[in-house]
Design a protein around this nucleic acid. Structure first.
Length: 477
RNA sequence: GGCGCCGUACCCAAGUGGUAAGGGAGCAGUCUGCAAAACUGCGAUGCGGCGGUUCGAACCCGCCCGGCGCCUCCA
């Protein structure tokens, strides 16, 4: 049974959905004013894998992930560039899909935008005012945190503590310094929508409450996002939602850790910032391969902890994947021997069970991957002992189906050598085959000088040759 | 000032009270004309330090050292 670490309770808990075999989850997406970085990728990937695993486990999942498309930073960016906010947001939404698509991150069931839910946002704000939890000042509306006794429940903070360390500007119009905006009056030139308080735009937190309630109901199963959203974003969402509905909001709160560089959080001010597209542009591998490397890398650490991004980390992920695809390559060859066939079934069963156990344990992807590594080692032995063509096919299929949960091992076109794009141009498969045949002939005549020369020539083109005991050779790029 | 996280071999990384998973690198072998791949063996008497609880602790408690995050926008 799946157990998840719930930020709300600070404990790992068995996951029990509200409705059997059904999961409704909401994940905070991105504010679309810039390209996504690796940190965004990690968050998106963690919840992509959670969704995949829930579906693998037999749940029908309704997955909602929003785009924040109205916000101070968007307005600022639009003004800087002298373009409309809409042109900024549509550009970066497209970029989001493009970048995440390369990582194999699928679309959510619903991907709502704040700007398309103004009615719900205004209604929710009105409800909070009528319940005495919010108040209007001028054209602004604030949530009054002191009226919501459970404020601080998620982030485990007390109002007094927040006050002590607050560096926020004191706004005399607020009744408490921590009161936050539900609705902001708009300045000239800013995007705005009509409301009972004059034209304006929503505060940051209210959109998620409005859209999740609209699409998933007042109470739903899982709410996720990055660690940094715990406070104030998610704390405020809870206050707004529970305050308005009087019901429980999300039952399980799941938060992923940060991507860091040299032990420090990635941030623009430190200049240690890598966008997803930058990684792909700089990669010496093809897009599909780079995507899988990145995925493997991001999943090789538990989602809850910090993850240090580094070239070495990517390199090690590539090597690990090379090992898997090396095996898959050999599993694709035919063999009449069947000596090890009987061992295969139990071996796969054991792996499936261990894999599920790892994933059930708060989505422990590093252990899940290591179980696949064990299977890889075991299968390498079986292949040596003799595994029939059919058994090899079943073995490959096992990797394919478990790998699908992590988004790994799906391709049949892995690239072993680097700079593959250039290699492709330099020599075709047919030409390689010709060279290999020529080399085989040389070997047969014990002309090893010639054989080695051909191998060296192919190596230079990114082709690796492996001689088999029977005198034939396999090769890979 | 408040809240919280982290510190496991050369590197990455599991472990959540029962005697240190897995991967990479390295070294030594097997195989091979050589190479590549694969396989085999070697690698923390030890889990930042010091105490404590316990029959037993990397795992629980306390103190200390070191690193980081949040409290303002942030995945």
């Amino acid at each position: 049974m799946l157990q998840l670490f719930n930020t709300l309770t600070g404990k790992r808990e068995p996951f029990e959905p509200i409705e059997p075999k059904t999961v409704r989850m909401y994940v905070c997406g991105v504010t679309v004013y810039d390209y996504c970085h690796i940190g965004h990728a990690r968050s998106a990937l963690v919840f992509d894998v959670l969704r995949r695993y829930l579906e693998y486990s037999g749940y029908a999942v309704t997955f909602v992930k929003n785009f924040t498309d109205v916000d101070d930073k968007i307005i600022k960016r639009a003004n800087e560039q002298g373009v409309s906010c809409e042109s900024i947001t549509s550009k970066f939404i497209d970029a989001y899909y493009e970048d995440m698509g390369k990582l194999g991150i699928g679309r959510a069931t619903e991907e709502p935008k704040a700007t398309a839910h103004m009615t719900e946002i205004v209604n929710l704000t009105e409800a909070l005012i009528s319940k005495g939890l919010a108040y209007a000042v001028g054209g602004d509306v604030y949530f009054q945190v002191e009226k919501y006794p459970a404020y601080g429940r998620l982030s485990k903070r007390k109002l007094e503590d927040l006050q002590a360390g607050a560096r926020v500007d004191i706004d005399e119009r607020k009744r408490h310094p921590m009161d936050f905006a539900l609705w902001k009056s708009s300045k000239p030139g800013e995007p705005s929508w009509p409301s009972p308080w004059g034209s304006g735009r929503p505060g940051w937190h209210i959109e998620c409450s409005a859209m999740s309630i609209r699409l998933l109901g007042e109470t739903f199963d899982i709410h996720g996002g990055g660690m940094d959203l715990i406070f104030p974003h998610h704390e405020n969402e809870i206050a707004q939602s529970c305050g308005a509905t009087g019901k429980e909001f999300a039952r399980y709160w799941v938060h992923n850790g940060f991507v860091q560089v040299n032990q420090e959080k990635m941030s623009k001010s430190l200049g240690n910032f890598f966008t997803i597209r930058e990684i792909f542009e700089k990669s010496e591998w093809t897009e599909a391969v780079t995507g899988e490397i990145l995925r493997y890398f991001l999943l090789s650490t538990h989602y809850h902890g910090p993850l240090d991004f580094s070239d070495q980390g990517l390199k090690e992920s590539k090597q690990a994947l090379d090992g898997f695809y090396d095996l898959f390559y050999r599993l694709g060859e035919s063999d009449l021997r069947t000596a090890a066939d009987v061992s295969l079934g139990p071996m796969i069963e054991r792996t499936i069970s261990a894999f599920q156990q790892a994933m059930d344990n708060d989505l422990n992807t590093p252990v899940a991957v290591s179980e696949l590594q064990k299977l890889r080692g075991d299968l390498n032995k079986l292949v040596q002992q003799g595994l029939s063509t059919d058994a090899r096919r079943r073995a490959r299929q096992a990797f394919r189906s478990l790998g699908a949960v992590l988004g790994l091992f799906q391709t049949d076109r892995w690239e072993f050598g680097s700079r593959i794009a250039e290699c492709d141009k330099q020599i075709s498969d047919q030409e390689v085959e010709l060279k290999i045949a020529e080399r085989a002939a040389a070997k047969k005549q014990k002309d090893f000088t010639r054989a080695d020369a051909i191998r060296k020539e192919l190596n230079a083109l990114g082709i690796t040759i492996e001689d088999k005991p029977d005198g034939t050779s396999r090769w890979k790029r």
